[in-house]
């Protein structure tokens, strides 16, 4: 009897609290038990009603964004782990480099990999070949040229992935920033940087801004933040490239020291914010 009553009590609770039926309607189904059931059902209904507190919408939204951002970060780490690591043992890197040089000489696979995109099977081979190329590139101008070429390649890949509606892994954004920063660092420390290289850097960073601004709208919510950061970085890089060009015209402008770079970065972000009508100064 008691077991049966508990079962009926639970059936009524499901109908009233979770399906929105009225107490009266439910009691009609069990007239012989209604006297015993009613006070318990009303007690449960009141408890459920009183307990219906809600989290603050701002908290709910912020916590969700943090959760999705954590997922994106973990994915990025996993993807990096899946890629061949060239930094952990130099000896292995050199040995592998030589092997790859032979492959480059023979052509076929590497040639095939040049058109691969992030996420493709041959893409790790493409980036590995690039690392070998960087390893055997000497002289500041040549190195700056190569880093710019690789940055152009990354932005082209991002553009193609976007056009083909494919997923853009966030590590490509990191690689883009690394290559651009390497080029800027080399050109910034050069006593007499070549005009054509600086002009190429200005064009490159300008193109980065355009492509990233176009791509960001299609990025999934969990990577939006990363894309915004990448866009902000490209804007900063463009600001630095512009300063380098100004220095060519007015040679008395000193080189950008790290603290000046930070200051410049803040200044440039403010300019961008003002241009967007959302300055937060």
């Amino acid at each position: 009897m008691n077991k049966k009553f508990n079962d009926i009590l639970d059936i009524c609770l499901e109908r009233i609290i979770f399906k929105g039926e009225t107490v009266e309607k439910c009691l009609e189904s069990y007239p012989t038990l209604s006297e015993e059931l009613e006070p318990l059902l009303r007690a449960a209904l009141s408890a459920s009603d009183i307990f219906s507190v809600k989290p603050r919408p701002a908290f709910k939204q912020a916590a969700k964004a943090r959760l999705l951002s954590t997922i994106a970060t973990k994915e990025e780490i996993e993807e990096k782990r899946r890629l061949p690591s060239w930094h952990w043992q130099r000896r292995w890197a050199v040995a592998f480099s030589l092997a790859l040089v032979l492959l480059i000489a023979s052509g076929s696979i590497v040639t095939a990999s040049t058109s691969s995109l992030p996420g493709d099977t041959l893409y790790p081979l493409k980036t590995a070949a690039e690392k070998v190329q960087a390893f055997f590139t000497f002289g500041d101008d040549a190195k700056a040229n190569l880093h710019m070429k690789l940055a152009e390649r990354r932005i082209e890949e991002i553009n193609l992935l976007n056009e083909r509606k494919r997923h853009i892994p966030v590590y490509v954004l990191g690689a883009l920033q690394d290559e651009t920063n390497h080029a800027i660092t080399i050109l910034n420390r050069a006593e007499e940087p070549k005009e054509n290289l600086i002009a190429r850097l200005v064009d490159l960073t300008s193109n980065q801004k355009t492509v990233l601004a176009r791509v960001i709208v299609n990025a999934p919510p969990e990577t939006q933040q990363r894309f915004r950061e990448a866009l902000s970085n490209s804007e900063t890089a463009h600001g630095r490239a512009t300063i380098l060009r100004e220095r060519l015209i007015k040679p008395n402008i000193p080189q950008i020291t790290p603290w000046q770079h930070n200051l410049e970065q803040k200044r440039f972000k403010n300019i961008v914010a003002i241009e967007r009508g959302g300055a937060d100064i």
């Binding site: 318990l40 009303r42 007690a43 449960a44 009141s46």
Partner: peptide
């Protein structure tokens, strides 16, 4: 599930007795 149903029943009986505010919601 049976044990939970028993606890649910006894908890509602106890709550009903202890909480004077039910009458406001009836």
């Amino acid at each position: 599930q049976g044990a939970v149903k028993v606890m649910q029943h006894s908890a509602l009986v106890a709550l009903r007795k202890k909480f004077s505010g039910w009458s406001n919601h009836e």
